[in-house]
Design a protein around this nucleic acid. Structure first.
Lengths: 189, 189
DNA sequence: ACGATTAGGAACCATTTGGTACAAAACAAC
DNA sequence: GTTGTTTTGTACCAAATGGTTCCTAATCGT
């Protein structure tokens, strides 16, 4: 061992995730990335390979921190309706407020051209879909397993489209009322 | 008058639309764009302003050609169910097969940073939503106007999410069955 | 204390970027 | 055919890009 690293890898990765999440891969140049990570070129290329590998690591970080949190919230939801339990998917607070969904952004920008991105985003999307399916199962929505799976895919698409539009306008309308009717729940007060 | 233009503006714009639609704005460099348009630098900068203005023109071209066609098909649909009438939105043939939806792509990549892109994509999305609403009205789906508007927004988000995911994988599942159940239609044969 | 080892930062590099300048070429008017 | 006008293609440019080098400084093991 010798001189220890001055920056915190986790903090730097969080910055990388944020900037790639907001601006995308191509529009993020190295100075942008470095200042978001709080380090300089030297440290960057000592600790990481290149821009692309950090992007992939940022996707993994998103999976580990954001997707995992959402999935846990979905499976731990104690609300009395499925639409309420799915709220974490449509919450527009914190990072998601202006950045949308990193999975969706990466799918749209890079998945057709980068197999690693396609694989990661596909895997994360499946995690989210499975979590949605679990919520539907808890509330016995969708009838049989086949239909429930289809319905969970529908909600997943809804989730992506919701956040894609959110990047263009901050007007989302009443998503919970829409979901509530979709599930045939009694109208909330 | 003098030397006439050798290239066809409409053909060139179609090429520009295709390449921006597929690769996005930042990932399309000038050589890519020029070869897609079938012209060289000289002609390009004589006939157009710069890369960004051509991107905006490509969005307008998409509005004029693709969105208009879809909207017309939606309003002229003679199928016997709403889900069948909405098929043009979820057709994965031709350009849409691998490129997804240009509105969605532009919203995700540029709308947060470019007001003109945000305005155009917002306007196109509203055209599509209104056309969906019309289909729902024709089949008397959604109950009252308020709910129908919410439901049309839901289908619009579904449409965006569907094509966002389509850029990562070509597996879409049975979208019509999902819509059919969503609308409470009798199960198709 | 000191050598080994590693982080940090600035200068540097080749390539690519979007955009311009300009001369040759192709037409219309006469 | 001459002239005037506009298009086209190529050569060119400055700036920005991602990435490397290299030197200094900091910290560890002994």
């Amino acid at each position: 061992m010798a001189r220890p690293r001055e920056f915190d890898t986790d903090t730097a990765m969080q910055g990388a995730m944020r900037v790639f999440w907001m601006k995308g891969y191509a529009a993020t140049n190295l100075p942008d990335l470095l200042s978001a990570m709080g380090i300089t070129r030297g440290s960057f290329y000592k600790a990481f390979d290149d821009k692309e590998s950090v992007y992939l690591a940022a996707l993994d970080y998103y999976d580990d921190k954001i997707v995992s949190t959402v999935v846990e919230r979905l499976s731990a939801g104690t609300d009395d309706s499925a639409s309420a339990c799915l709220a974490p998917l449509f919450a527009c607070t914190g990072d998601a407020a202006d950045k949308g969904c990193f999975i969706c952004n990466a799918m749209v920008e890079l998945a057709p051209f980068n197999a690693k991105v396609a694989e990661r985003t596909g895997r994360m999307a499946e995690r989210v879909r499975a979590a949605i399916e679990d919520v539907l199962r808890r509330f016995d929505i969708g009838g049989n397993d086949t239909h429930r799976r289809e319905l969970s895919t529908l909600v997943l698409h809804l989730y992506f489209g919701f956040h894609a539009m959110g990047r263009a306008s901050r007007v989302h309308g009443d998503w919970q009322a829409r979901l509530s009717r979709l599930f045939g729940e009694a109208a909330p007060a």
